[in-house]
Design a protein around this nucleic acid. Sequence first.
DNA 1: CGGTATCCAAGGGGATACTG
DNA 2: CAGTATCCCCTTGGATACCG
Lengths: 94, 94
Amino acid sequence: MTLIGNKWTVLIVRDLLQGTKRFSELRRSIGNVSQKVLTSNLREMEAAGLVSRKVYAEVPPRVEYSLTETGRSLKRVIDAMSAWGAGYQQAMCH
Amino acid sequence: MTLIGNKWTVLIVRDLLQGTKRFSELRRSIGNVSQKVLTSNLREMEAAGLVSRKVYAEVPPRVEYSLTETGRSLKRVIDAMSAWGAGYQQAMCH
DNA sequence: CGGTATCCAAGGGGATACTG
DNA sequence: CAGTATCCCCTTGGATACCG
């Protein structure tokens, strides 16, 4: 619950399910996240073993985030959530 | 997301999936919730159409909460969450 | 019993500035 | 580019007291 019951965690996993993304890509795809919040959430998720962080020794720097196998296993949950959300919106549009 | 991405919402739905409960029962089954927080969350969920509230004109008063059909439809999501949580804990116990 | 009202502490999160 | 460091606000949530 502490892990999944977090708005940012869900959004990050959802976007990373599409594949590896750079920090800035992730930030744009999520929309309306401050750098600080995204960073701290990614750090927590890394510590929890949900995402892996790969730093390339380049200039300008490049950092890529991807889901670990554990992170990918959240797909079932995300799918259930989005399916429910779609149904809920329809039900509210009567 | 605003609805499901809430710790209390998930816990309340999980417990009400077992059947109708009184306010105090709900509070005990969730554990560590102040009266204020439980009340305000129940009100939000009622407004969102997830739970229904039934007041009995008795002394001492009795108020029963149950899931609406929409609320029950969250079972899929809760199940997915708890299944993932169980798997996650196992994976962390290697 | 099932609240509402009030006060207060903790921390989540935005804005901005600065850095390797 | 991908952060870190501050500052500060605002919401969330606990504690307490009181009510119908």
